[in-house]
């Protein structure tokens, strides 16, 4: 009996040593993965697609005419509606006319030129083509 239990005991001891070592290796691996992939990702300032497409969504770009625009154009809606949009001078003027005819926007008088100058300069369209490449992809390891 005691003869046969001895080798079993040895195997058990050996296994527990192997398990401990394996466990340590896995643990170290996990820490490494965390350090290499997750940690820098969490702390880096990854900007998302929408933030790139719409820079500074919370406010209007610094520039001449900004105050006039802010005063006249953020009464009914936030500036986000302006900063999301891009148009030519004519396009901006059409939007203003549409708001004057249908949305209670007042006559802007001399300010209109100031506003259009500003919008034309800072919120002009950029050519995008018929389909853009996928941009600002946030790469990540897909778990099984």
């Amino acid at each position: 009996m005691s003869e046969s239990s001895n080798p079993l005991e040895l195997v058990r001891k050996l296994l527990s040593v192997i398990y401990t070592v394996l466990g340590l290796i896995v643990f170290a691996g996990l820490i490494l993965i965390y350090a290499v992939y997750i940690e820098p990702y969490e702390n880096s300032d990854v900007v998302t697609e929408t933030e790139i497409v719409k820079p500074d969504v919370d406010g209007l770009v610094e520039g001449e005419g900004r105050e006039v625009v802010a005063t006249n154009c953020t009464v009914c809606h936030s500036a986000k509606l302006i900063t999301q949009n891009r148009a030519t001078r004519e396009g901006w003027q059409n939007m203003i006319r549409w708001m004057q005819e249908t949305q209670n926007l007042w006559q802007l008088g001399d300010n209109e030129v100031v506003i259009l100058d500003y919008l034309e300069k800072y919120y002009a369209p950029e050519a995008k083509g018929r389909r853009q490449a996928l941009k600002n992809i946030e790469w990540y390891e897909l778990e099984d």
Binding site: N85, G91, K128
Partner: peptide
Amino acid sequence: RSEFDPPAKGNQWT
């Protein structure tokens, strides 16, 4: 809407 070129007016939904 955000994909149109020239850009289209309104909220730029993706």
